[in-house]
């Protein structure tokens, strides 16, 4: 990452190209996985605590210890 302008030493091996991913191909994946992941994080981290969808305590109780240990406010 540093000083890309520095001239390569003679005889230094050229670095292989790092593969890139086309951002237009990536966008729909990022949107879909992003939303799904946020939903999963919501159920583990906050559901049936501050907000309840669905109402009840079953999800909260099931992931209870994980919620505490992963640092989310539990109760």
């Amino acid at each position: 990452m540093s000083h890309t302008a520095a001239a390569p030493l003679t005889g230094a091996p050229t670095l292989p190209d790092v593969p890139t991913v086309d951002l237009r191909e990536l966008a729909p994946w990022a949107l879909f996985v992003g939303l799904l992941s946020l939903l999963v994080l919501f159920f583990v981290s906050a559901d049936q605590g501050a907000i309840s969808i669905p109402a009840g305590t079953a999800i909260h109780e099931w992931v209870h210890d994980g919620r505490h240990l992963l640092g989310y406010p539990c109760h």
């Binding site: 999963v40 159920f43 583990v44 099931w62 992931v63 209870h64 210890d65 994980g66 240990l69 992963l70």
Partner: peptide, 8 residues
């Protein structure tokens, strides 16, 4: 329960 949370 803990395993569900950490794996999810």
């Amino acid at each position: 329960g803990l395993a569900t949370a950490t794996i999810a």
